[in-house]
């Protein structure tokens, strides 16, 4: 297999540089072009080798003033784990009251980050 070239848009600043990253057969970065600053190269290298995202969603609340509470992963998870993370989030139900920062699911979908509440929902 030959080298592989990945195209991406840098999001580190409003410039939005189109960056090309060349990967070798071992998926290692061998060349980065199109960036106009070092931050762009840093972003591109991380993005093609191990892209990470924070997932935010909602979880069903029983007996609360609202039917759902907003949640987030307390750290980034691998981008290709987002849908597995959502599947795990959708299994969770909590009883009110829920408070900001409460851990609602430990190590969500085994991806290395806890699921925490991002707002208060009081009981009714």
């Amino acid at each position: 297999m030959a080298n592989q070239i990945r195209e991406l848009t840098c999001i580190r600043c409003p410039m939005g540089c189109q960056i090309q990253v060349t990967l070798n057969e071992e998926k290692e970065v061998v060349n980065i072009t199109g960036n106009t600053c070092p931050r762009g190269a840093e972003y591109a290298a991380a993005e093609v080798t191990h892209p990470m995202r924070t997932v935010t969603s909602t979880v069903k609340v029983i007996g609360g003033e609202l039917p759902v509470v907003s949640v987030k992963t307390a750290g980034d998870i691998p981008k290709d784990g987002i849908m597995a993370c959502m599947a795990a989030i959708n299994q969770v139900q909590v009883k009110a009251p829920v408070h900001i920062g409460d851990v609602l699911l430990e190590n969500a979908a085994g991806l290395g980050a806890d699921l925490v509440a991002t707002r208060d929902v009081e009981a009714i």
Partner: peptide
């Protein structure tokens, strides 16, 4: 409920409800 709020104000990335709180 998405994140990305507060990078300037609190030097950390918060969700909307957390920023409001």
């Amino acid at each position: 409920i998405h994140n990305g709020f507060g990078l300037h104000t609190f030097q950390e990335e918060l969700t909307g409800p957390e920023y409001a709180a």
